[in-house]
Write a protein that binds this DNA or RNA. Structure first.
Lengths: 156, 156
DNA sequence: TAGAATAGGATAATGATTCTTTTTTAATAA
DNA sequence: TTATTAAAAAAGAATCATTATCCTATTCTA
């Protein structure tokens, strides 16, 4: 964890940005909530617990900076807020998401499932892919508690 | 074209909605600009040309209604505005997009490239897929004017 | 035609995000 | 250490997209 902070610090320094206390607090919140997909407001509220004097605008600026540096990815599930997602270290691709339309949970798929598809697109459409966004909307494993029967959505 | 309007009209009626003049004008704008990915504001300005008295709120309401009926898809490329995209008739899947990071153009891929990937996800993650969003960000064919050589992105 | 319900127009309200101004902090040079 | 300068932050105003509200218009039915 400390080492990740250090690496992010180096990344900032290499572009002559500083890891200020506010920025560090923000990064720590992201690290501590890596599972979640926090909105700027969510991050703000969590950062406020460890650095009560921070302002919302600062959080926005920091998240924007981290997005630029590719430390986080800014994603949008269509609910009107941007969410910020720590990029897996070493991963050059954006991970995929599973959004449950029942409970709203967002799960991640770390594997890159698009290798073949990207090849087809690059060749077939003559398009040089730099990044991708793939999100599936549907019913998550918790919500259809599929224990062997096909009957989904019984009642409720 | 008329027949598509008629079918949309039937769809509305089947849920006891009416195809009012304002709604019809909105649908016509969408049909006439099927290639583009219009924002609500874009649609509003275009509809105003044929029905000057229409209000922005009505356009929003109509687009929301059409989204509910699955006549259009609401998409978001991360630029802060929602865009509305006529669903290809008969297509049960959401088409994919190619967003050029140079010129901003958005191209569509009608083919469904995710068949295999979806199978993997449904089985591997026990997730019942209802819809998907796939967008590639990169350089479009116009911007790297790749006329015949294989050498993509050498250097850069 | 009266009455009820749906839809639209105008605009206020909301909520997320960005901008602006002033203050604080950090880094450097004398 | 102290003055100088620039980057960063705080606070809140401003902006932009979207939604809600309130009232009028239209349509449908009895």
């Amino acid at each position: 964890m400390e080492s990740r902070i250090d690496r992010i610090k180096k990344q900032l320094h290499s572009q002559s940005y500083k890891l200020t206390p506010q920025r560090e607090a923000t990064v720590r919140v992201l690290l501590e909530n890596e599972e979640d997909h926090l909105s700027a407001e969510d991050v703000y509220l969590l950062v406020k617990e460890k650095a009560p004097e921070i302002g919302l605008a600062t959080v926005y600026r920091t998240l924007e900076l981290l997005t630029e540096l590719k430390v986080v990815d800014k994603i949008n599930f269509g609910d009107g807020v941007s969410r910020y997602d720590l990029r897996t270290e070493g991963a050059d691709h954006f991970h995929h998401h599973l959004v449950c339309i029942e409970c709203g949970a967002v799960d991640e798929i770390q594997e890159d499932l698009l290798g073949d598809v990207e090849k087809v697109v690059e060749e077939g459409w003559n398009f040089k892919i730099k990044d991708h966004r793939l999100t599936f909307h549907g019913i998550c494993h918790r919500c259809h508690s599929d224990d062997g029967n096909e009957d989904k959505g019984s009642g409720e």
